[in-house]
Design a protein around this nucleic acid. Structure first.
Lengths: 224, 224
DNA sequence: ACCTGAACACCGTTCAAGT
DNA sequence: ACCTGAACACCGTTCAAGT
């Protein structure tokens, strides 16, 4: 009288698997428990399906993580461009950051993986077209794009990995870090301990991006 | 007549395990096959010991990877400071890069992990002391340090993950990428396809760092 | 003090067997 | 066309049993 285990494709309207649903389920796992918690079995569990069934829709775990990264990158809603170079680049960067902070656990995937697809090219197009409209030649634009993206990625990686508690909330932790730094024996570190022990993502983001855009503007001015 | 399996601690001068040897062996695994190939069993194999023995010297796999990151960070040989702000920051960044490129497969560990130890504080001290000597107040120094490091990390992450073949060697790959970009339907991307399809780590590094240092110098000048 | 056997609860992935 | 059972070669980690 035990329930006889089924085999083969389920008979009726049991939910069909799809690549899209699988990617979505994976993102759910990541949001809940981090990238490290992703396994074919865990994703299958979310969908009520066997892990092996996923292989009918994705090539494997690595390809699945790539797909999640592409989904995130492709889901960025780019701003309408106004023609103001600085304002437009600021807005593009903000769109990037917004997406990263919406899925902080997944952000490292986008920031870290080498993506080959065309999906993620829209932000690149946006930045390059702003630079082109600013009168920047293509070779210079590509250099500036890469430097700008590097700063953006480095800044966001730090922000998402620092977590929200690093800053204002955890006063005990701040005090402890500060005293460690003060007693580090390193004079410049000790002198800056108060500031090193604190971190506010939004402030650091604005500082770094603003700095990068200043540098970029200076190069564009040189150009002319 | 089969060899009887030993149990308990081996009787004599069989190599002792040590935290240091374990970290070194892990780095060997990473250099050979990447971070993904690290497992307690694989590291044990390198040392001729059982994976479980490692737990007598490190808390677990995650702590082991942290230790590798700290070893890399701590092993950076910092330049003697000359008093020239730009030259000194350039030299510090170069030391960072040199270490990253010496272990490209391991670099993401250092660039990505949140390190809590004091080992990695020497580069921070170096940068902060250069900024202090340039007359920059501590709060501003910390912002500039973080922005500078973000650019450095973003740039190096790209360089190590791009691999050496992206640039000059793989002419077929370059041509293919270029034609994909030209046919992407994105006008600015298509216009810059020739440059987007190519990547030279050293050139991009110099461009990005130089840009960051220009921006930093401008801020220091404002200050006064 | 330190190493290992046995053991547990996991992995990713292949492939044939099913519907 | 798509799902699963059986199977394989892996994982990290605990703990008691040994020397």
């Amino acid at each position: 009288m035990t329930s006889t285990p089924r085999r083969g494709r389920p008979p009726k309207g049991e939910r069909q698997l799809s690549r899209e649903a699988i990617v979505e389920a994976t993102l759910k796992v990541i949001d809940a428990d981090g990238v490290g918690a992703v396994s074919m079995r865990a994703v299958g569990r979310v969908l009520g399906a066997d892990a092996k069934s996923l292989y009918n829709h994705v090539a494997g775990k690595d390809a699945l993580l790539d797909a999640v990264a592409e989904e995130l990158l492709g889901g960025i809603t780019l701003p309408d461009l106004t023609g103001g170079t600085r304002a437009d680049l600021l807005a593009i960067a903000a769109a990037f950051r917004e997406r990263a902070l919406a899925h902080p656990e997944a952000a490292s995937l986008v920031l870290t993986r080498q993506l080959a697809s065309l999906e993620g090219l829209a932000p690149v197009e946006a930045v390059l077209s702003v630079l082109r409209d600013a009168g920047c030649p293509p070779d210079q634009s590509v250099h500036l794009l890469r430097a700008f993206v590097a700063t953006l990625i480095g800044t966001l990686l730090r922000e998402v990995s620092a977590g929200p508690t690093y800053g204002t909330t955890d006063t005990a932790g701040i005090a402890q870090r500060q005293s460690i730094l003060e007693n580090s024996g390193l004079p410049a570190v000790a002198a800056a301990a108060h500031h090193l022990a604190r971190f506010d993502g939004a402030t650091e983001y604005e500082f770094a991006i603003s700095l990068a855009l200043d540098a970029l503007a200076a190069r564009l001015a040189d150009q002319r």
